[in-house]
Structures are given as C-alpha cells and as structure tokens.
C-alpha cells in the first residue's frame, strides 16, 4: 500500500501531496508575512536614505543626538542604543532556546525561555519609550531661520555645545500661549518655549563667548562653526526658538530627521510591542499545556520566526539610523 501511494505521487506532479518547500502551511505563511514586512521596512529605510542623500551636507550627526543613558549624566554616544541592540539579541537567543526546548518537548524549559524572551522585549520597548521621551524633550535648544534651517550654539571657550538657558536673558516678557480657551476659538498655537526668540537673541549679544553652529557639515565631518561676526549676522535670520522635537521641527537639524526617527523606530517599536503580546499569548498556551496536547511546539517556532525578524530589522535600523 505504501509503495503504491508513493509511486502515484511521484508520477504526477499535479496530483498533490508534494511538499517542495518542506515547510508546514503555518510556517510558510509566517515566512510570506516576514518577506512582505521586510520589504515594507526596506521601503522606509530606502526613503530615509533618499532624504539623507538629498541633504547629505546638512543631515544631523546621530552621534551628537543620541548621547544619553538613563541614570547617568554626561555624553555617552551610542552606548544606550548598543545596550538595546544587545537586549534584543539576547531575547532572540532565549527565543531560539525555547524553540529548541519545544522540539525536545520540555514544557518547563519552554515556559522559562518564553518568559525571559518576553522580559527582554519589554525592556527593549521601555528603552525605546525612554529614548523617544529624551528625543522629544531635547537638551540644548536651537533657533530656526526663515528657511527652516537650525542654528545651534557652542561655547567658544570649551568648544562644547551651549544650551540656550545657559545664556538667554530673562526679560520678563509677558507671553501667553494662544490656546483655544484664551484666543479665538479656532486658533491653536504651539507650546511656548522656555525663552522667547528675543530673550535668546539678547542673551547671545550679551555673551561674547557664544558662537553659532550651522547644519552644514565641513570636510572634516563636523558641523560648521561660525565666527562671532558671522554668528551675529546669521542671528538676524532666526525666526523662532526650537526646543526638542515634534513632527514639524526639531532642534537637531533637518526636519525630516525627526520625522524618520519617529516613523522608523516607531514602526519597529510597534512590531516589538506586538511581538511581546503574541509571545505572551503563546506563553500562556504553553503553561496551559495546549502544545503538549497537540503533540508539537510548532506554534512556538512560528512566533519565534516573527521575533527573530524583529531583531533582524533592528540590526538594520541600528546601522542605518545610528551608525552610518
């Protein structure tokens, strides 16, 4: 009987029963999803590359933007992002170990490894939330010109970046945010910055050791520092104070930079979040013994594929957003 069935399948390719890819339906569908999602992320990163090449001379330098580590003061470029990368790789490892334990039908080991994976994912999402908060809050503040260019400040003595609250004068100007309940009902203004444009300009004039740094990157790969005379000239173009980042403008430089930051890391963060949720569902199923009854842990393997994919995407985001 066995021989008869095999012969029939071999004889007719269209007769069904062939498994050319040797993978189950569920796993194949997960791979289809992953490939299409990979193309989506590639689209985002390629669009980032497009905008960056378009403004290659003025794009913000990531090292100067992502310099913070929670609970530590000071300048630590890349350290926290590297930590996040490591956390995600680590949770990928516990995920493979869970899949491996599943193959051996060790329920308790799968439970523990899934648990550790979920914790790793939660730490990553939390770190990303913190990074967003830091990015949105900003640290030095800047001015924006009529053309939408960002002017940052540098202390000429130390060569370090100067925050606007270090030199801006407090002129006690009465400023009221034009909120809906205070102005005309249909007008809605942005949040007031800590200092008004005038206070920053007057403060700049009163402090001879403050210089302006433009967005333009010079041949040494640094942002161009203007002389005091050039700075005072450039100051005339300033139209507003920018603190931190939102979807319209940011103190780091090109407007598109913050947009892509929110868009790409946000989309990735959402993937991690949904990965954590799916992992948690599978985790409870493992505890309930669903896969023990089913006789195999393929579901863990499928969710594992998704989880590794999220890690894989982060490897690329890390390179193209933070390193290159």
């Amino acid at each position: 009987m066995d021989t008869a069935v095999t012969t029939e399948n071999e004889g007719s390719v269209w007769g069904g029963g062939n498994r050319p890819l040797g993978a189950s339906y569920g796993k194949l569908m997960m791979w289809f999803f992953i490939v299409s999602d990979a193309l989506t992320f590639s689209g985002f990163l390629a669009a980032y590359g497009f905008s960056r090449f378009k403004f290659i001379e003025t794009w913000p330098i990531a090292d100067e933007v992502f310099t913070h580590v929670p609970f530590f003061h000071g300048n630590y470029p890349m350290i926290y992002v590297a930590f996040m990368t490591f956390i995600l790789i680590m949770s990928s490892v516990t995920m493979v170990l869970a899949v491996d334990a599943g193959h051996k039908m060790k329920q308790n080991a799968v439970i523990w490894y899934m648990f550790l994976t979920i914790i790793g994912g939660a730490i990553f999402v939390g770190s990303q939330a913190w990074e967003w908060a830091t990015f949105i809050k900003g640290d030095f503040g800047a001015l924006e010109t009529k053309g939408g260019r960002i002017l940052q400040f540098v202390n000429a003595e130390t060569g370090e970046r100067a925050a606007i609250d270090e030199f801006a004068l407090n002129l006690n100007e009465a400023r009221i945010a034009d909120a809906r309940d205070k102005g005309v009902w249909f007008t809605d203004n942005e949040t007031l910055t800590t200092f008004s444009l005038n206070e920053v300009i007057e403060g700049f004039k009163a402090n001879p050791n403050i210089l302006i740094r433009t967005e333009t990157i010079n041949e040494n790969g640094h942002k161009t520092l203007l002389t005091r005379e050039q700075s005072l000239g450039r100051l005339k173009d300033a139209v507003r104070v920018v603190e931190g980042a939102n979807l319209i403008r940011n103190e780091y430089g090109s407007r598109l930079f913050a947009d892509f930051f929110f868009f790409i890391t946000g989309f990735h963060g959402f993937h991690v979040f949904s990965g954590v949720v799916i992992n948690a569902i599978i985790f409870f199923n493992v505890i309930l013994g669903t896969y023990e009854k089913r006789g195999h842990y393929e579901m863990v393997e499928k969710v594992g594929l998704y989880w590794h994919f999220v890690d894989l995407v982060w490897v690329f985001v890390f390179t193209f957003f933070y390193l290159v």
Partner: peptide, 20 residues
C-alpha cells in the same frame, strides 16, 4: 554578516530546503 547569522541560525534557514 549579522543578518546572515540571525536568519541562518536563529530562524533556522540553514536547516530548511534550499528552495525555501
């Protein structure tokens, strides 16, 4: 290089059929 090892060893592509 990292992507290769994540896909090949963590996602088990090394153990899959060449066609897949």
């Amino acid at each position: 290089v990292k992507a290769y090892y994540i896909a090949w060893d963590f996602m088990h592509l090394r153990d899959e059929k060449a066609a897949l």
